[in-house]
Design a protein around this nucleic acid. Structure first.
Lengths: 119, 119
DNA sequence: CAGAATCCTATACGATACTG
DNA sequence: CAGTATCGTATAGGATTCTG
């Protein structure tokens, strides 16, 4: 059974202890959004991913990938060769997420100029 | 003319200086998501909003509302009475945004248990 | 190549007190 | 009621160095 807005919003308030807040924090983190979108529909190696998400530091890339792997959004596939060859891709759950985040990025890109010009 | 993913994603990379990143940071901030969703389709006073978004501090509510007002997402309507009576509601642009954020919250609520159980 | 480890800074955020 | 001001802390995030 799926939960709707009505349950989340019981009594017109967003419950403080709702577990969705944790998920929301992972998923709407500064780099999280961009990493997931960069992986949409394709498999990338560590270095490729780092270049795809311009400006991300190694630390944040590692941290974001670990969180998302633990959350079951990203899958890590390491091939035992030298030099190391590691690939990252989205799980089906991750693909669900990216389908929700892409419209947000497109909307942000289309309205950024108007919004930021405003003062 | 509207911008699509192809332009945002030129060469397979998410440009570092894309203004959408700033908008994205506003809009995906910890409290921003919840405030906008709390205002969906209704007008709330300061105190009501504070109770609706459980756990938000006065500081963060004020800060979030100011940012969103400057971004043109939220409109502030103050009535010159004593005691003060101030109402907040979404602009049409804000309503566009909330339509994109709601599915994300619902998705988060539905997958939170699975995702967070996983380690 | 794909990270881990370390150190450091900025800022997001919270708690409390105060005010027109 | 609807904030502002101030202070303090936690953590997000960055830069650099090191390693199998």
């Amino acid at each position: 059974m799926t939960v709707g807005l009505k349950q989340i919003f019981a009594g017109g308030a967003l419950a403080q202890d709702c577990p969705s807040r944790v998920v929301l924090d992972h998923v709407t983190s500064k780099w999280g959004v961009l990493v997931v979108i960069a992986l949409d529909g394709r498999t990338l190696r560590w270095g490729e991913l780092r270049r795809a998400v311009q400006g991300i530091s190694e630390k944040m890339l590692a941290q974001t990938l670990k969180t998302f792997e633990a959350d079951g959004l990203v899958v890590r596939h390491a091939r035992p060769v030298i030099p190391p060859h590691v690939e990252y891709s989205l799980t089906p759950l991750g693909q669900e997420l990216v389908a929700l985040l892409q419209p947000l990025l497109v909307w942000a890109a289309n309205n950024a100029d108007t919004m930021l010009a405003r003062d």
